[in-house]
Simulated assay, not measured.
Amino acid sequence: MDKTPGKVHNTTLKSEVCNETFEVQYYLPKSFSDLYKYHVLITFDSQDFFKFGQIERLIEKLEKSEEIERSIIVGIPYPSVEWRKHYFNPNGENHDDFLTFVGRELNSFIDSNFPTLKMPNSKLLLGESLAGSFALSLALTYPNTFGQVLAFSPYVDDKLIDRFKDNMNLINLNIYHTIGLEEDDFTTIMGEQADFLTPNRKLHDVLSDEPLEYVYKELDGGHIWKTWKPELAEVLTYFLN
């Protein structure tokens, strides 16, 4: 396995539960060494986190200035916009199997191939839009494996909200949740009109009364990386400092 530091690598992982092979991306910082243990940033929509969020540059900068602890990035890219609807959406036909793939098979792949800190608070799930919904769903399903979640503007419906109500596993979670003030009426990449602001505020009302660590922000802007990218540095220092 190629462990050249300072570059984004692409590999594949065969899933037994899904009976298909998924692409996996990973980034090891320039200072990477097997002598150290690392936090893991697990990104969904990983190609967007690299291209638009430039997350690898950010961890290099923050690690160099000693604002975050040592971290690597492992991500799942999406092969098509349509694919996200079936795998990331909590109501998608492949969602449950994909949860098992990430929670068991991908997690095992990460711990077997990289020197990781094998604790729930050392694995941070990151996602935006449907990928943010998937990150929340995954943490609810495997709270003893993944203890930290960033959800930028997640797709939220009543079914997802109900999963958070009176859920005793929430005590293990630390969630950073944002929504844009211009997301009350916008066109999704699927070409559909949507209001994400209202249901995300409803989710916030529920989470505010539950026993977990929780940060909620309403950001100036819409459902785009121009809104999310400026928040990434604060997110990483919040979880990894």
Rank of each mutant, 00 (worst) to 15 (best):
M1I: 11
T4P: 10
G6H: 01
G6S: 09
V8M: 04
V8R: 11
H9P: 07
N10H: 14
T11Q: 05
T12I: 09
L13M: 14
L13Y: 11
L13P: 08
L13R: 10
S15M: 11
E16P: 00
V17D: 05
C18Q: 15
C18A: 10
N19W: 04
E20Y: 04
F22A: 05
Y27L: 04
L28D: 10
K30D: 06
S31E: 12
D34W: 02
D34K: 12
Y36K: 12
H39G: 01
H39I: 00
L41P: 11
T43I: 02
F44N: 03
D45P: 07
Q47A: 10
Q47K: 13
K51C: 00
K51H: 12
G53L: 00
G53I: 03
I55V: 15
E56H: 15
E56Q: 15
R57F: 12
I59G: 07
I59S: 03
E60Q: 09
K61D: 15
S65H: 12
S65K: 13
E69W: 00
R70P: 05
S71Q: 07
V74S: 05
P79V: 13
V81W: 05
E82F: 04
G92M: 01
N94D: 02
H95V: 05
D96N: 11
D97P: 00
F98T: 09
T100P: 00
F101Y: 13
F101W: 12
R104T: 12
E105R: 11
S108E: 15
S108F: 11
I110Y: 10
D111I: 14
L117N: 08
L117W: 05
K118L: 08
K118Y: 13
K118Q: 15
P120F: 13
K123C: 02
K123G: 05
L124P: 06
L126P: 09
G127M: 10
G127F: 06
G127S: 09
E128P: 00
S129V: 02
A131T: 05
A131M: 04
G132V: 08
S137Y: 04
L140I: 13
T141D: 10
Y142V: 08
P143F: 12
N144R: 12
T145E: 12
Q148G: 04
Q148K: 15
L150C: 10
L150M: 13
L150Q: 02
Y155I: 04
V156H: 08
D157L: 09
D157C: 06
D158A: 14
L160W: 12
I161N: 06
D162A: 15
R163Y: 14
F164E: 14
K165A: 12
D166C: 07
N167E: 15
L173Q: 14
N174P: 01
I175C: 05
Y176T: 01
L181R: 04
F186K: 00
T188C: 02
E192C: 02
A194N: 04
D195I: 06
F196W: 03
P199D: 07
P199N: 08
P199L: 07
L203C: 11
D205G: 02
V206R: 11
V206T: 15
L207M: 15
E213L: 11
Y214C: 08
Y216V: 03
K217H: 09
E218P: 09
E218R: 10
L219K: 02
D220Q: 10
G222H: 01
G222W: 04
G222M: 03
G222I: 04
W225I: 02
T227K: 08
W228M: 05
P230R: 10
E231N: 13
E231G: 06
A233L: 01
A233R: 03
V235R: 01
F239K: 08
F239M: 09
